[in-house]
Design a protein around this nucleic acid. Structure first.
Length: 767
DNA sequence: ATAGGGTTAG
C-alpha cells in the first residue's frame, strides 16, 4: 500500500524509466523521422489555413505538455510523428521539445535526423533550436558536434554556452566544463545561476576548492548567491571538501529553505559523521520550517546514523519513513541496509533486503559493502554466492566488495572466481574493482599477480596507486613502494592521507628511517595533508623498529594530538623487538590505563618479562589479566590447499591427518638441527623444562599449517600460510631453514605484514 | 515554451 502511494507521488521518475524502456524498444530507423519533405503545393486560404495553423499550434502545445509536465518523452515523440503525418511543419518550439526527448532517451540518430530537417527548414541560427541541439548532442556524448554547433552560431548566448557547460559537467568532464566557462568569460558572455551551479558541480567533483571559492566570490558579487540552486551547489562543494562549517554558513545565510537545501546540509553532516547535527537540521526542517522530508532526506539522515553505527536512532527514522511512505524507495532501503549492517545488526539489514520489491544491483552492493566493511566477510561471501545464483547482476561495487572480503580472508581461489566474473562483465578497468583485486592478490600473498592487475590499467587513480603501494609495503618491499609513489606523483595523481599511511608503513617495515621522516614532513608541507594519529603511529613504529626508542618517545611527547592506544602499541612493539623492558613497562602502563581489556598488551608485557627470564613478573601480569577477566585471543593459522582451507590452533589435535603432520614436523626438526638450527625456547613463554618448551614450539599453529602444506602439496610448490596473530620469533627462524632444506617458497601473512621465505632468507630481512 | 541543485562504495 505504502509503496504504491509513493509511486504516485513520484510519477516523473517512473515516467523516465518508462521512457527509457520504450526508447530501448524502438528501433530508431523505424521512426523514420524527417520533416520538410512533404510538398503541400496547394495553397490553402482563409479559414482553412487558419484552422491548420491552429491545429499545428495545438499539436505543439500538447507536445510540450506531454514531455515537460510528465516527463513522457516517448509519447511526445509519437505526437510529433502524428504531426508530421498530418502534414504539419514543426516550428522551433516543437523542435526544441522533440530534441529534448532525444536527449533524455538517448536517441542520437533520431536527433541527428532532426538536425538535418532543421537545416532544411532554415531554422539554424535560432538560439532556441541551437541550444536544444547542443543539449541533445552533449547528453548523447557527441561533444564534437555539440562544440561544432556552438562555434557555428553567429552569436552564442548564455543559453547555448550554458547548455554545453552543463553537458560537460554532467558527463563527468569537469575540466572541460571549467575551461569552457573561462572561455565564456573571455567572450564576455555573462554566466547566470544555471551556469554557476554547473561549474560549481565541476569544482566539487574535482575537489577544486580554489576555483570553487572564486566562483563563490563571483556569485556574491553578482547576487546569484541568493539563488537556492547556487547555494546548494556551494554547500555541496564545501561539504565534499570536508569543510562543514563553511557549508553550514552557506546554509545559515539562506533566506529561503527548501527541502533540497536542508537535505544537502544533512548530507554534509552525514558525510563527516556528525549524526547529532544532522538530526538537528532534520528537526529544524520539520518543526521550524514545516518542510516535509522526502526520500533523499531520509536516505541522508539514515546515512548519518549509519556512519556512527547508531542503530537506535536509525531504527526511529526507519519507522518514521514507514509512516510517511518513504521506506520502500530504493535509496532509502540502501541507506537502511547500510545503517543496520554498520551497526552490526545483520538480521535487520537482510530483512530490509528481503522485503525489497526490486532487488537492484545497487542494494546488493549496499548489503555486500555493509557486510564486508564491517568485518562480516564470511557472510558477505555467502551472500554473494546466493546473489550469483539469483537473477540480480552484481554491479562493479558489489564485485569489489566481494573481492575485498576475499582479500581480507585471503581466499585467493574464491577471489579468482570473482575475478573471472569481473572479466566476463568487463569491469576489469574499473578503478574501484581493480584496487580490490590488487588488494586481493597482495593480501593473499601473490604480489606479482597484484602488479599484473595494476599494470593493465589504462587510467590509474589515487586509489589504485595507493593499493599497489600498500601491496609492496605489506610485502616489505619498501624501495619498490617508494619508487611507485614517485611515479604516481609524476603522473599527476594526488596522494591522500591513506597513500601516506602506506608510504610511511613501507618505510618503517624496510628500515628507511631517513626517507620516512622526509615523507612525513613532505605530507603536510607539499600536499597540505594534516597528519592524523595513524601517521604518527607509523613514525613511532619507524623510529622504534630502527632502535631509536628515545627519539620515538620524544616524538610521542611532542605530538600535537593526545597519544592514542595505537601510538603506545607501536611503541610497545618496538620495545619488545629491542628488549627494552623499562620503556616497555612505561608504554604498557599507559596502554593498560586506556584499554584494560586488550589482551595483546598483557601478552606482550608478559612475553617481555619471560624473555629476560623474569618468570615471576610474567606470572603477575598473566594473573592480573586473568583477574580482570581478559582472555588471550587464541592464535591460529590456516592454509589454502586445493579448494579448501585447513586451520590449526596451537597444539591442535583435531585435524584428521594430525599424526602424519606431527611425524613430518618431527622429521623436519631432526634435519633442521643437523644444519645447526637451535630452537629459541625464550619464545615458548612458559616456564618449564627445555624439552617441554621445544615440543610446544614445534607444534605452534603456523608450524602445523606448514606441516600439512608439506605433506598435502607437490614438492617444490609454493606454500601460503596465514596467521591471525604475529608470527613468533622461533617460527620465523625455523621457516627460513625449512625453505632452504625443502626448497620451497613459503609466504606467511601474519597480522601485520608478509614474510617471504626463500632459500634460507626472509624478505623482511629479520627487521 | 530552451538549462541547474540532493542518494550507495573504496
Amino acid at each position: 500500500m505504502e509503496r504504491r502511494a509513493q509511486q504516485k507521488k513520484n510519477p516523473k521518475r517512473r515516467a523516465e524509466k518508462e521512457a527509457k524502456r520504450a526508447g530501448a524498444n524502438t528501433t530508431e530507423a523505424d521512426v523514420g523521422l524527417g520533416a520538410g519533405n512533404g510538398e503541400e503545393g496547394e495553397a490553402v486560404e482563409g479559414k482553412v489555413a487558419e484552422a491548420a495553423r491552429a491545429a499545428r499550434e495545438t499539436a505543439c502545445y500538447m507536445y510540450h505538455v506531454c514531455y515537460s509536465r510528465l516527463g513522457r518523452y516517448n509519447e511526445g515523440l509519437e505526437i510529433y510523428i502524428r504531426m508530421l503525418n498530418s502534414g504539419l511543419l514543426p516550428n522551433e518550439y516543437a523542435f526544441g521539445s522533440v530534441l529534448r526527448s532525444c536527449a533524455e532517451s538517448g536517441l542520437l540518430r533520431t536527433g541527428a535526423q532532426l538536425h538535418g530537417s532543421i537545416v532544411k527548414l532554415g531554422l539554424v541560427q535560432n538560439v532556441f533550436v541551437d541550444s536544444s541541439l547542443i543539449t541533445m548532442y552533449a547528453k548523447n556524448q557527441n561533444f564534437e558536434t555539440a562544440i561544432g554547433v556552438l562555434r557555428r552560431m553567429k552569436e552564442g548566448d548564455v543559453f547555448s554556452w550554458t547548455s554545453l557547460v552543463v553537458g560537460f559537467s554532467n558527463s563527468g568532464r569537469a575540466l572541460e566544463a571549467l575551461k569552457l566557462f573561462s572561455q565564456m568569460l573571455e567572450e564576455d558572455i555573462r554566466p547566470n545561476e544555471y551556469t554557476l551551479t554547473s561549474v560549481l558541480k565541476a569544482c566539487t567533483s574535482l575537489e577544486d576548492l580554489k576555483e570553487g571559492c572564486q566562483i563563490h566570490g563571483y556569485a556574491i558579487k553578482t547576487g546569484f548567491e541568493e539563488d537556492t540552486s547556487v547555494r546548494i551547489s556551494l554547500l555541496r562543494l564545501y561539504a565534499e571538501i570536508g569543510d562543514v562549517s563553511s557549508a553550514r554558513s552557506v546554509y545559515d545565510r539562506s533566506a529561503i529553505c527548501d527541502v533540497i537545501l536542508c537535505t544537502a546540509m544533512i548530507g554534509g553532516y552525514a558525510q563527516t559523521g556528525r549524526m547529532e547535527l544532522a538530526i538537528e537540521i532534520f528537526l529544524q526542517m520539520l518543526v521550524e520550517f514545516e518542510i516535509l522530508p522526502n526520500e533523499f532526506t531520509f536516505a541522508n539522515v539514515i546515512a548519518a546514523c549509519a556512519d556512527v553505527g547508531d542503530c537506535r536512532c536509525g531504527t526511529c527514522f526507519h519507522s518514521f519513513a514507514l509512516k510517511t511512505g518513504h521506506a520502500y524507495i530504493v535509496h532509502v532501503e540502501g541507506a537502511l541496509i547500510d545503517m543496520y549492517a554498520k551497526s552490526g545488526n545483520l538480521k535487520d539489514a537482510c530483512k530490509v533486503f528481503e522485503n525489497m520489491e526490486e532487488k537492484e544491483a545497487i542494494s546488493c552492493s549496499s548489503i555486500l559493502a555493509g557486510f564486508s566493511s564491517n568485518g562480516y566477510d564470511q557472510e558477505a561471501l555467502k551472500f554473494y554466492s546466493t546473489l550469483h545464483r539469483s537473477s540480480v547482476t552484481p554491479d562493479p561495487f558489489a564485485l569489489a566488495s566481494a573481492t575485498i572480503s576475499c582479500a581480507k580472508l585471503a581466499h585467493q581461489l574464491q577471489g579468482k572466481q570473482i575475478h573471472v566474473q569481473i572479466i566476463k562483465r568487463g569491469h576489469e578497468s574499473d578503478n574501484c574493482v581493480a584496487s580490490a583485486l590488487i588488494d586481493l592478490y597482495s593480501k593473499s600473498g601473490s604480489i606479482e599477480d597484484a602488479h599484473r592487475v595494476f599494470e593493465q590499467l589504462v587510467r590509474r587513480d589515487r586509489i589504485t596507486w595507493t593499493s599497489m603501494i600498500d601491496g609492496y609495503a605489506q610485502h616489505g618491499e619498501g624501495r619498490k613502494a617508494l619508487e611507485l609513489f614517485e611515479c604516481m606523483i609524476e603522473e599527476g595523481a594526488q596522494p591522500n592521507e591513506v597513500t601516506f599511511v602506506s608510504v610511511l608503513y613501507a618505510c618503517s617495515h624496510a628500515g628507511l628511517v631517513k626517507e620516512g621522516l622526509r615523507y612525513f614532513h613532505l605530507m603536510s608541507s607539499n600536499y597540505g595533508i594534516v597528519p592524523v594519529l595513524h601517521h604518527y603511529a607509523c613514525v613511532v613504529d619507524l623510529l622504534g623498529r630502527a632502535g631509536q626508542l628515545e627519539e620515538a618517545l620524544q616524538f610521542i611527547k611532542r605530538m600535537p594530538l593526545e597519544p592514542s592506544p595505537l601510538i603506545w602499541k607501536a611503541f610497545l612493539g618496538a620495545c619488545r623487538i629491542h628488549n627494552n623492558l623499562d620503556m616497555g613497562i612505561y608504554a604498557s602502563s599507559r596502554l593498560l590505563e586506556m584499554e584494560p581489556e586488550d589482551d595483546a598488551t598483557y601478552v606482550l608485557v608478559a612475553n617481555m618479562y619471560a624473555a629476560v627470564g623474569r618468570w615471576s613478573d610474567a606470572l603477575v601480569v598473566r594473573n592480573l589479566m586473568k583477574n580482570r577477566g581478559v582472555r588471550k585471543a587464541p592464535g591460529f593459522s590456516w592454509i589454502e590447499v586445493g579448494k579448501s582451507f585447513h586451520s590449526f590452533g596451537a597444539g591442535d589435535t583435531i585435524h584428521p591427518q594430525i599424526e602424519l603432520i606431527h611425524k613430518a614436523l618431527d622429521e623436519l626438526n631432526f634435519e633442521m638441527k643437523k644444519t645447526g638450527y637451535v630452537p629459541e625456547t625464550v619464545f615458548s613463554l612458559h616456564d618449564g623444562d627445555e624439552i617441554e618448551k621445544e615440543k610446544i614450539l614445534s607444534y605452534h599453529s603456523e608450524k602445523l599449517a606448514l606441516g600439512f602444506g608439506l605433506i598435502a602439496t607437490a614438492s617444490g610448490s609454493p606454500l601460503r600460510i596465514f596467521k591471525n596473530l604475529r608470527i613468533c620469533g622461533d617460527c620465523h627462524n625455523a621457516l627460513k631453514v625449512i625453505s632452504l632444506i625443502r626448497s620451497r617458497t613459503i609466504v606467511v601473512r601474519d597480522v601485520s605484514r608478509f614474510h617471504h621465505f626463500r632459500e634460507g632468507k626472509c624478505s623482511c630481512g629479520d627487521y
